[in-house]
Structures are given as C-alpha cells and as structure tokens.
C-alpha cells in the first residue's frame, strides 16, 4: 500500500484547518442558511461564518503553539461570538477536544480521533441528542466510526481524515428522511422530514476541511 507520508497534526496544521474552515463557511453560508429556512430560523450560515471568521482573526493574532491550545482557543471564541445553539455546541466540541490533547506539540491520527471523540461526547452530553435525532451528531458519529475503521486498517492521517469526511458527508445527506427530535426543527414534527439538517451539513464541511488540510500538508 502506498501510504502518503503522514503530516503531523500540530498547531500549524489546525491553524490552516481554521483558515480553510472560515473560507469554506464563508462560501457555503448562503446554502447553510437556505437549509435552515424550512426547518429552522434561517441563520445557521450567517452565524457559522461570523464565528469562524472572528475566531480566525482572534486566534491568528496570538496563535497558541500546541494543537490542543489552538482547538481550545477556537472553541472559546465560538462560544463568545456565535450564539444560538451552534456556539455552545461547536465551542464545546473544540474545547473538549483541545483539552484532551493537553500540551502535546504534535499528534497523529489516532490521538486526533480520541480528541474528537471526547469533543463529540461533550456535544451529545450538552445537547442531549443521540444518533438519528437529525443533528450535527449524525455527521460526526459516522465520521468517528470511519476513523476507527481506517485506523484499524493502518491508514495514514490523510486516509483516515478522507474516510471521516466521506462518512460525515453521507451522514449529513442521510438526515434528510429523519424526523427531528432536537433543536428548533423538532417543533415541526413530521414536517421536518425531507430536509437535510443544516447542523449536520456544517459539521460535514468542517470534517472535510480537516481532510483537505491533511491532503495539502502531505502533497
């Protein structure tokens, strides 16, 4: 197997991920807001764009020198700028993941997976949601499972994150037939069926940005 050379996940890697994420969310803001219109309150794209652009500016001014530090700082800025449910949920995801990484200067795909797992557990705990509730977890949980499988198969960081991105995108698409049980879409009952969840969609974009960052680093 011609595994690509592994790029370490260090502070610089996650700062590049933040930059890519802010760019992607800026580009996709209108689509996220459109997804949020029929089953939410038409603001998911605007809020995510505002939060990630603010985090890029703030964290870029005084960049932490560990990957854990970068994630924790981004999480804190999201909590302070996004509002709504997305701010605390994405903020908690990244803060928990950052804390899990501790002071390590660089980690591999396995440690990154463990950190993301801790972050996703934090999201589930805070929001009280489970798989199938038509939330961001429906993109994140399949992404973690895909990382497990790819790691077990000895995949490189890029391969592991590519698998995660693919699973997250499929998971987001698979929310369309689901009936929402959490968040504002849940008020619609059966009428939430037939719409892709905006939170799962933004989660898939953020995981895809991780894969893109890894691919560029190893190119």
């Amino acid at each position: 197997m011609n595994a690509l050379p592994d790029a370490p996940v260090d502070a610089s890697f996650l700062l590049r991920w933040l930059d890519t994420s802010a760019t992607v969310l800026d580009r996709e803001a209108n689509r996220l807001t459109l997804l949020d219109s029929p089953i939410g309150d038409a603001d998911h794209g605007t809020n995510m764009r505002r939060g990630f652009i603010a985090a890029r500016t703030a964290v870029g001014q005084e960049p932490p020198d560990t990957p854990g530090g970068v994630l924790t700082a981004i999480g804190r800025h999201l909590i302070s700028t996004v509002g709504g449910a997305s701010g605390p949920l994405y903020g908690t995801l990244l803060r928990r993941a950052g804390k899990q990484l501790g002071d390590e200067p660089a980690v591999g795909a396995e440690r990154l997976r463990d950190a993301l797992r801790a972050g996703v557990d934090g999201v589930a705990q805070l929001g009280g949601a489970a798989a199938g509730d038509k939330t961001m977890l429906d993109a994140l949980l399949p992404a973690l499972d895909a990382m497990d499988t790819a790691l077990a198969g000895g995949g490189s960081t890029t391969e592991v994150l590519d698998a995660a991105a693919k699973a997250a995108a499929e998971g987001a698409e698979a929310t369309t037939p689901l009936r929402a049980r959490k968040g504002r879409a849940s008020y619609l009952g059966d009428r939430s069926i037939g719409h892709q969840d905006p939170g799962a969609t933004s989660s898939a974009l953020l995981v895809a940005a991780l894969a893109d960052t890894a691919r560029e680093a190893s190119a």
Partner: peptide
C-alpha cells in the same frame, strides 16, 4: 429575516399556519 432577505417559509395567500413559534419557523 435580514440575513435571508425573503420569507423564511412559503405561506400562500388564502392560507394560515396554526401553532407557529416566534422565529419564523412554520407551525404544525
């Protein structure tokens, strides 16, 4: 909403929506 610039859901003339919330989310 200002962000969307148009109606957040589609409600034709001559129809009404029962059980709405206060965030432009449709009712039941």
């Amino acid at each position: 909403t200002p962000a969307k610039g148009g109606p957040t859901f589609d409600l034709p003339d001559g129809e009404l929506e029962l059980g709405i919330g206060i965030h432009g989310e449709p009712g039941r």
